[in-house]
Computed example of a mutant assay.
Amino acid sequence: MSAAAPFAPGLFDCRDAYARTLEALAAEDPRIVAVVNDSVGSSKLGKFRDRFPERLINVGIAEQNMVGVGAGLANGGKIPFVSGAACFLTARALEQIKADVAYSAANVKLCGISSGVAYGELGATHHSIEDLAWLRPMRGLTVIVPSDPWETAEAVKAAAASDQPIFIRISRMPVPELEHRAPFAIGKAEILRDGADVAIIAAGTLVHRALAAAEALAAGGIEARVINMATIAPLDEAAILAAAADCGAIVTAEEHVVRGGLGGAVAEVLATQRPTPMRILGFDGFQPTGSAEWLMERAGLTAAGVAAAARDLVSRKRD
């Protein structure tokens, strides 16, 4: 991918892939519009605005109105991509997401920008680490957490092609491009690395860290299966149950609180269908002010932290 990003070589901002893909789709489909909350810059939709000025609606800092406008546009036959900082889109407009979008099955694409702890220095008010727990229970609302620029672009394409409400969690933290083994498909997990000693199920910015953890584990004789669970809802239960049967131990890792997100979803499947030892890695409640990387390290959301949790599970399994 040739997208420029203000990161070290080989690392990318998924917002670039989002904006570029949305602009390309809009050029082909006049029904696609963007709705923002004074977030043209943070959503990187400046080129979209310049190219399609009549198809970008800026409601100002009014997230509830933004989602309502999106739902109205969908009812009028448009395909609105409602784009704003994930922390404000999901928290401030949760009732509108529930009633106007999910309950009404409106063809709205909710795009949570700069998710997780990307706004680290701005503190807990700007961290979006509870959003999956809020949105995942809403039946009919698809929830996608892409892992890299390619998967972000594919998720946007899949969302545009669907007539169902979808939430896409779009990261701004630097991530590498991964070597994907399968085409992107909503509701389908992807096995990025084979292994039978332990399974690491990760989403978003934790996927490349899970792969690095698996490399470190392999050096110590532990073969870890790495599963990219990009779709949190609907969940690929078959992939989870296969991992439980083959590996007998599961670690989940996500840029989210440990309650109600990917880990909680996996635990629900295991508890009701195949009890399996597991560890849920994530944030434990509100986080302090600090850089995104410092917050990730503080919570053990690093390759070393994931590897340590996996080693602990494997040792318990073998004892």
Rank of each mutant, 00 (worst) to 15 (best):
3 A>L: 15
4 A>R: 06
7 F>P: 08
9 P>G: 03
17 A>C: 10
20 R>T: 14
33 V>R: 00
40 V>M: 09
46 G>K: 14
47 K>P: 06
50 D>H: 06
52 F>P: 01
57 I>D: 02
60 G>Q: 07
60 G>N: 10
64 Q>V: 12
73 L>M: 15
74 A>P: 09
75 N>I: 11
80 P>K: 06
82 V>P: 04
85 A>Q: 05
85 A>N: 05
86 A>S: 14
88 F>K: 07
98 K>R: 15
99 A>W: 00
104 S>P: 00
108 V>P: 07
111 C>T: 09
113 I>Q: 05
114 S>K: 03
114 S>E: 04
115 S>Y: 06
115 S>I: 11
119 Y>A: 00
119 Y>D: 00
120 G>I: 02
120 G>P: 06
139 R>C: 11
142 T>A: 14
142 T>S: 14
142 T>N: 07
146 P>E: 06
149 P>W: 01
150 W>Y: 10
153 A>K: 06
159 A>I: 06
167 F>K: 00
168 I>H: 06
174 P>D: 10
174 P>N: 12
177 E>G: 04
179 E>H: 12
187 G>L: 08
188 K>R: 15
190 E>Q: 15
190 E>F: 04
194 D>H: 14
194 D>P: 02
195 G>H: 00
200 I>E: 01
204 G>P: 10
210 A>K: 06
216 A>Y: 05
219 A>N: 10
220 G>L: 11
221 G>L: 04
222 I>W: 08
223 E>H: 15
227 I>G: 01
234 P>C: 12
234 P>M: 12
235 L>S: 06
236 D>C: 08
236 D>K: 03
239 A>N: 05
247 C>A: 14
259 R>W: 12
259 R>Y: 13
260 G>T: 07
266 V>S: 03
271 A>D: 11
272 T>H: 10
278 M>F: 11
281 L>N: 06
282 G>D: 08
283 F>K: 01
284 D>E: 12
287 Q>D: 07
290 G>Y: 08
295 L>D: 00
308 A>C: 08
308 A>R: 11
310 A>Q: 00
313 L>H: 00
319 D>Y: 02
